[in-house]
Amino acid sequence: MSLTETTYWVVGASFALYIVIAIRSRASTTQEFYVAGKGIHPIANGMATAADWMSAASFISMAGLIGLSYNGYGGSVFLMGWTGGYVLLAMLIAPYLRKYGKFTVPEFIGDRYYSNTARIVAVLCLIICSVTYVIGQMKGIGVAFSRFLETDYETGLLSGMVIVFFYAVLGGMKGITYTQIAQFCVLIFAYTVPAIFISLQLTGQPIPQLGLGGTLADGSYLLHKLDHILLDLGF
């Protein structure tokens, strides 16, 4: 079996897994559709959130933004804001949204401040943020498919959109959460295995964290090399 065929089998199997998860965890009530029935364990919820952060819009787009910006420090500001936004959202909005029993942020904002104007502003902010995020996600899907599956950009984009639409509409937040948990396992495996082998090749250490303090073949420290790379990027 060729590498291309193996890639198609692996990607097809992962898509099939996501679809099966969406079917088995499909939402049957409004609460399950919007808030997954409030029955997701915190660890599982954290895995789903982490998978969302490690998605195309965050991992590919932010890395490209830092690498292609006039200096890495300037691009990293967006990365810090992106990450900090997750924390602020989790600390300042999510607990009160749950306490109020509302399903959406505009609902919560409108009722909390007794203002339809505030509700409309929240809707506009939500649309702008969501559209920006979805553009990055869809671009990442198209690029990933076109590069790894050797298809054209449009085919990859449409395939990804169909899969996401299927499990998002069928399962709602419940289906999305469990699908994200599966994606987290796939992503962690995909990130960890290359890191282990790179560490072995460069420093002889199978644990990447220990390899950071190791030496390279020329006797120099890996951290010094990485420091020079960061300086070249503008940090």
Rank of each mutant, 00 (worst) to 15 (best):
Val131His: 06
Tyr133Ala: 01
Thr29Glu: 06
Val77Phe: 13
Tyr178Thr: 04
Thr155Val: 11
Leu68Ile: 08
Thr192Lys: 07
Tyr96Met: 10
Thr7Ser: 07
Tyr178Leu: 05
Val35Glu: 10
Asp52Val: 08
Gln183Cys: 02
Gly101Ser: 06
Ala48Ile: 05
Trp53Lys: 14
Ile176Gly: 04
Tyr34Met: 10
Ala217Phe: 15
Trp82Glu: 09
Ile128Met: 08
Val105Ser: 02
Ile93His: 07
Arg119Gln: 08
Leu187Asn: 13
Glu32Ser: 05
Gly175His: 07
Gln137Arg: 03
Gly84Ile: 03
Arg24Ser: 11
Phe235Trp: 15
Leu200Thr: 00
Thr132Gln: 10
Met47Trp: 10
Val162Cys: 04
Phe165Asn: 06
Gln205Ile: 07
Asn116Met: 11
Val164Cys: 06
Glu32Val: 05
Ile23Asp: 00
Ser28Glu: 14
Thr151Asp: 00
Lys225Trp: 15
Gly72Phe: 09
His228Cys: 00
Val162Lys: 08
Gly172Tyr: 09
Phe189Glu: 04
Arg112Ile: 03
Ser76Pro: 00
Phe165Lys: 06
Ala16Gln: 07
Glu154Asp: 07
Tyr96Phe: 15
Pro194Gly: 01
Tyr70Thr: 12
Ser69Ile: 07
Val162Ile: 13
Thr179Val: 13
His41Val: 04
Phe108Val: 04
Ser25Lys: 15
Asp152Phe: 02
Ile198Lys: 11
Tyr114Lys: 15
Val143Met: 09
Val87Pro: 00
Leu124Arg: 13
Gly81Tyr: 05
Tyr18Glu: 00
Val105His: 08
Gln31Trp: 09
Thr215Phe: 14
Leu216Gly: 09
Ile207Cys: 04
Ala118Asn: 12
Ser76Cys: 00
Ser115Trp: 05
Tyr86Ile: 12
Thr215Cys: 05
Gly85Trp: 04
Gly74Met: 09
His224Asp: 10
Ile141Gly: 05
Gly175Asp: 01
Gly156Cys: 01
Leu158Ala: 06
Leu231His: 15
Ile60His: 06
Leu89Asp: 00
Ser199Val: 06
Cys125Ser: 10
Ile93Val: 14
Ala63Asp: 03
Ile43Arg: 11
Pro95Cys: 01
Phe33Met: 05
Arg147Trp: 15
Tyr34Gly: 03
Ala90Gly: 06
Cys125Arg: 08
Ile127Phe: 12
Phe78Gly: 00
Gly140Glu: 03
Gly101Val: 04
Ile21Val: 14
Val77Gly: 01
Glu107Val: 01
Asn45Met: 12
Asp227Ala: 03
Phe59Thr: 13
Asp218Ala: 02
Thr83Cys: 08
Gly160Trp: 08
Val11Asp: 01
Gln209Val: 14
Gly74Pro: 06
Ala195Asn: 05
Gly81Ile: 03
Asp227Cys: 01
Val123Ser: 02
Val169Phe: 15
Arg24Phe: 15
Asp111Asn: 14
Gln180Ser: 12
Phe59Pro: 10
Thr179Gly: 14
Arg26Asp: 01
Leu17Thr: 14
Glu5Leu: 12
Ser28Leu: 10
Gly84Val: 02
Ile141Met: 11
Gly72Tyr: 08
Tyr8Asp: 00
Ala51Arg: 10
Met62Phe: 14
Leu124Gln: 13
Leu149Thr: 01
Leu158Lys: 11
Thr177Tyr: 11
Val20Tyr: 11
